[in-house]
Amino acid sequence: MALPMKPVFIACLLLMALTGCASKKTADEQQAQTTYQDPRDPLESINRDIWDFNYDILDAYILRPVTVGYMTVVPKPARTGIANVVNNLNEPASFVNALLQAKPRSAAISLGRFVLNSTLGLFGLFDVATRIDLKAQDEDFNQTLAVWGVGDGGYLMVPAMGPTTTRGLVGGVVDGLYFPLGLLNSNLTITRFTVSALDGRERLMSMEQLLNESVDPYAFIKEAYFQRVEFQIYDGNPPQKEEDEEYLDEYLP
């Protein structure tokens, strides 16, 4: 069930769509990298190189400039409508995953959202469902596998996509097979991905400073990713954990 997310979760969500800003390795970041080995991240050296490629090159020279141009040329109401259409395509997957997780209420809401937004909302152009308090549930197969007891697997930084895990990668593939995503041809799939990336990057503009002020942006985003996924799996009420203050101090300015 979708619940309000803290800024760190929102930042991570947007960064997953190839968003972010250029990250230059500082002395503090290099020190943090060498003093802590994360068992969740067995491919850290490779992942960090991919991070640099994603955010120092793809974002700096392609995504951010294109997003700025998109925001300049396309009016805000039109951008919102286009994003709504893309988001509406995910509702059937959310419906199925809610059923697989034994969440009948969430499943009913996702189904109701798809029907309302696809009809009264003109194929999802207008988010009619949210206006009557049927909020997006955002259930996916990654969460379903977690509920079934499947572990995260290794952390991965995917080129042109961002942070995930082996479980998350598998979940994303399965979600893409559901109706109507499974019926989209390659051109429509690319268009959907592009719109999602531009929408996510636009929303991140006001959050860039949060990432820039982190001692180790790579580690910050990794922690944000795992926290966000846990937040989703437990419907906004993850179990309380004792924070490792010594570890956290390594990444705080």
Rank of each mutant, 00 (worst) to 15 (best):
L210G: 08
L252G: 00
Y251S: 07
P104E: 04
D41E: 10
K103Q: 10
L100H: 02
Y234F: 14
Q37M: 08
G153C: 06
V215S: 15
A98N: 09
R48F: 03
F226E: 07
T194K: 12
R192A: 12
L125Q: 04
R228D: 11
R192M: 09
A146W: 06
K6L: 07
E208I: 11
V74D: 03
L177V: 11
S214W: 03
N88L: 04
L3S: 07
D216T: 06
Q37L: 09
D140M: 01
A219K: 05
T67F: 02
N90M: 07
A60D: 11
A160Y: 03
D152T: 01
L18S: 03
P42I: 00
P75N: 02
N185E: 09
V85Q: 05
K241F: 07
Q143A: 07
M16S: 08
V174W: 05
Y55D: 12
A22Q: 14
S118M: 12
S94C: 10
G154H: 02
T119H: 01
L120N: 04
A2I: 02
A107E: 01
A136V: 09
A83T: 13
E44P: 01
G162H: 03
L177W: 15
I10Q: 13
S45V: 08
D28N: 11
T67M: 06
A83V: 06
D140R: 00
N237S: 12
L100S: 08
A60R: 15
G153T: 00
D138C: 01
Q101E: 11
T67I: 06
Q33G: 01
Q31T: 11
S23C: 12
